[in-house]
């Protein structure tokens, strides 16, 4: 028994070549580009005492930025949850003119540089913009307000829910829907008892991805936000502000807060995926 245990690399001969080389290079590059620089953030915070750290990351201006960043990200992700599902549904189920083009355009927020998205949305929603000029008389200001932040974050999060839900809807068997109908379920019952539970894990994943992306977003937001302290400053901007003041410790402390939250989100996404894959037992 004993000789089977121990170093897996040594005792299990690989037929294919290049395992050590490829894994070695992968780990080396990963450490060099990602792990060592990221660890710098955590190590640099240790220069602050805990109370100093707490004081830096809980100033009123920062607290306001957390509220805006997380609040706007949550709202944007919820909008994308609803409209992303709707878009995926319509693109999978219905035929209409221009569908293929719209389908391809859904990825625009991935492909368009965020700065371009930012200035374009600002131009549209400014008081003299295409849409802004119609909203302003009704007392709705979008550009340079928190509402503008929501608009920008909705834009950049748009593809996530669509692209996670679309393949699930495509693979969904028509038989299951027919079975529900033959058992007497009406269309609405079939939808929320049969279809929705099946796409729910994908919806959650897409929502989390859109939310996580929105929290870290910078380029598209700073143009439309107006960046007024206490009102429309997002947390990533606070890092930049600290850096411009050469307050490295402050910038690092905020970065740690954001990183921890992002990692928790990443973990949640992975857990959700694991849970949805294992809840119903082994997949056939």
């Amino acid at each position: 028994m004993g000789f089977n245990q121990g170093n897996i690399l040594r005792n299990k001969p690989h037929v294919l070549p290049g395992f050590r080389l490829s894994l070695g290079f992968t780990l080396f590059y990963l450490c060099l580009i990602v792990l060592i620089p990221l660890s710098a953030v955590f190590l640099r915070t240790t220069e602050l005492t805990l109370s100093e750290f707490w004081a830096v990351v809980t100033t009123p201006r920062l607290l306001a930025s957390y509220r805006l960043t997380f609040g706007a990200s949550l709202i944007a992700a919820l909008i994308n949850l609803v409209f992303g599902f709707l878009t995926a549904w319509v693109l999978v189920r219905y035929q209409f003119v221009g569908k293929k083009i719209l389908d391809a355009l859904v990825d625009l927020p991935f492909a368009l540089p965020t700065a371009v998205a930012g200035i374009s949305l600002t131009a549209i929603y400014a008081s003299n913009g295409w849409i802004g000029q119609w909203l302003e008389p009704h007392g709705i200001k979008v550009a340079f307000t928190p509402l503008g932040v929501v608009v920008a974050l909705t834009f950049i999060g748009l593809p996530f829910v669509v692209r996670t839900v679309q393949p699930v809807l495509e693979d969904f068997s028509a038989e299951a829907e027919e079975a529900a109908a033959s058992l007497g379920a009406n269309r609405w019952q079939t939808f929320y008892k049969v279809i929705l539970p099946a796409v729910w894990p994908a919806l959650l994943t897409g929502f989390s991805l859109a939310f996580a992306r929105a929290i870290g977003e910078y380029g598209s937001v700073i143009f439309i936000a107006g960046n007024m302290p206490m009102v429309s400053e997002i947390t990533p901007l606070m890092i930049i502000t600290k850096l411009e003041q050469y307050d490295y410790a402050g910038a690092t402390a905020i970065a740690v807060v954001m990183l921890v939250i992002s990692f928790i989100l990443l973990l949640t996404i992975n857990l959700l995926q694991w849970w949805s894959a294992h809840r119903h037992g082994s997949q056939p």
């Binding site: 079975a179 033959s182 379920a185």
Partner: peptide, 20 residues
């Protein structure tokens, strides 16, 4: 409509609802 016919239909691949 299929819903009102009171037929029982067993599908080729069973079409069981996998989340139930």
């Amino acid at each position: 409509d299929v819903r009102e016919r009171q037929v029982g239909f067993v599908f080729q691949h069973y079409a069981l609802f996998r989340h139930m």
